[in-house]
Design a protein around this nucleic acid. Sequence first.
DNA 1: CCTAGAATGTTATAATGTAACAATTAAAAT
DNA 2: ATTTTAATTGTTACATTATAACATTCTAGG
Lengths: 147, 147
Amino acid sequence: MNQKELTQHLKQVKTLCTSQGARLTPQREQVLSLIMRSKKPLTAYELLEGMRQEDKTPAPPTVYRALEFLQEQGLIHKLESLHAFVGCNHPEHPHAGQFLICTDCGEVNEVCNHELDKSLNAVEKNQGFNLQRPVIELLGRCASCQK
Amino acid sequence: MNQKELTQHLKQVKTLCTSQGARLTPQREQVLSLIMRSKKPLTAYELLEGMRQEDKTPAPPTVYRALEFLQEQGLIHKLESLHAFVGCNHPEHPHAGQFLICTDCGEVNEVCNHELDKSLNAVEKNQGFNLQRPVIELLGRCASCQK
DNA sequence: CCTAGAATGTTATAATGTAACAATTAAAAT
DNA sequence: ATTTTAATTGTTACATTATAACATTCTAGG
Ligand SMILES: [Zn+2]
Ligand SMILES: [Zn+2]
Ligand SMILES: [Zn+2]
Ligand SMILES: [Zn+2]
């Protein structure tokens, strides 16, 4: 995400937070901004490093708290298989993410496949399971890296 | 898994390993045995603790090596969202696991849903993605815990 | 202003995972 | 059977990821 897109995104996100009575403080915004600008998912400690370059020297809880907030607001997703975080491009309606993760170039692509959703619903129904948080992370090689 | 089932499972597994030219050494068998006997997924350090009760005092690399071997042989699965390991009941034909994980009671249920598989294949095809390791972990409440 | 709750700062530590190299053991070759 | 080789295990140290606990500061609402 480039500077212009970022500015636009942050404006949207601020509106969104305000409407929810959630406070997108400067620190939280800084963490979000670092994540959105990155081409790759970032770990908590990479974010800490990023914050240090722009700012003072925050301690781990600072960044973990910001990450918790951003997840609650649906502004970022955590990738369990990478211990890293990516921004969400469609935070306006809450959703669980489905991710294609390239193990070669590190690119992460958030998809939204309704067939997959249906299958998950079917599993839920079959098993009498109440699904609350699906973790769908598809690791492999992206189209470019196969060439 | 009870003692009788375990014995039976270990016998099968030994045959399987032998046929692959893989060596299920006593340590590896001990780790597998701890995992299969447990009702809940176990973390590496819980396994270390378990090994210490039966044996000497192994260091972390010991258990991580055993876990790596067991995963390679398809005898166990790692749950990324829990940093923990569960046994596989169908190691005879290799597969990626699909898991229902109850956040109340901790029970983990490995399912094998072909609709879900199809959806994954469709995503692969649509995106030109070469899927190598799907991580499918469905967190929520199991049927019993909803009552 | 005053106060209550939210957010942040700070220190310490817990939990998870790996690098590097030495010692041992088991398989394979001679 | 002995030698050679590769696989496995032991050991130490450390890297990475994450949280508990408590103090301080800030902010919104009365
Ligand atoms: Zn999203
Ligand atoms: Zn790629
Ligand atoms: Zn399995
Ligand atoms: Zn349950």
